[in-house]
Amino acid sequence: MRDARASRSTITLKLLMAASGLLFILFVLLHMYGNLKAFSGHDAYNEYAEHLRTLGEPMLPFEGFLWIQRTTLVVALVVHVYAAATLWRRARGARTQRYVMKKNLASSFSSRWMRWGGLTILLFLIWHLVQFSFGKVNVAGGETNDPYNLLVDTFETWWMTLIYLAAMFALGMHLHHGTWSAAQTLGLTNNVRARRNAKSLGWILAVVIAGGFSLVPICVLAGVITK
């Protein structure tokens, strides 16, 4: 192909997907770490939430860091979803006549569930932002301007905890395959050992991040974290 350009290939789309995915991994790792502040009690947690707004001052204005981070994440999200949707459409077009019988031999459940899992996480994300960032919804009917209390109120509601745990399961799955997949797409797994390491890293990140996130709701529901 004489007019071929690297930038127009499916692999470039995947590179964008991998790069945006790495940003998300970094973000959820920090977010999860921040959530664990809930174990330090009401004041420490709220102080941490406030600190996020003043981070970088006086170089940055109030909430400056947060907005930079939000903008970056929104751009990454758009890229990630756009690439995913395009590749999904391609994949559907690549096999319009399905098999009568098809077995999966080597692929993990998480890898085959990336698209639906991703969609689940996206829906969850919207709810999560509505609940904790923009809308501030307290399902227990309590106050919404105290981050710590909002958190405890939420997870004391059993079905909210269930929704969050389900979402964390989806996130864990997504991270499990996504981490390895990003490494492979970035061309970092060019031998057996690197491949094995990338797969292990996927497991570790999935367990640490999804597990770390899940601790808080579980502990709230179990009464370990209280108002």
Partner: peptide, 28 residues
């Protein structure tokens, strides 16, 4: 052809057992 999602069904079906590394190399 569709894009690769690195799930590994190809290498399991390959009669010559070509490993997944080659896709990493391709991407690189």
């Amino acid at each position: 052809f569709g894009g690769c999602t690195n799930i590994g069904e190809c290498t399991a079906a390959c009669p010559k057992e070509i490993p997944l590394d080659v896709i990493s190399r391709l991407n690189w």
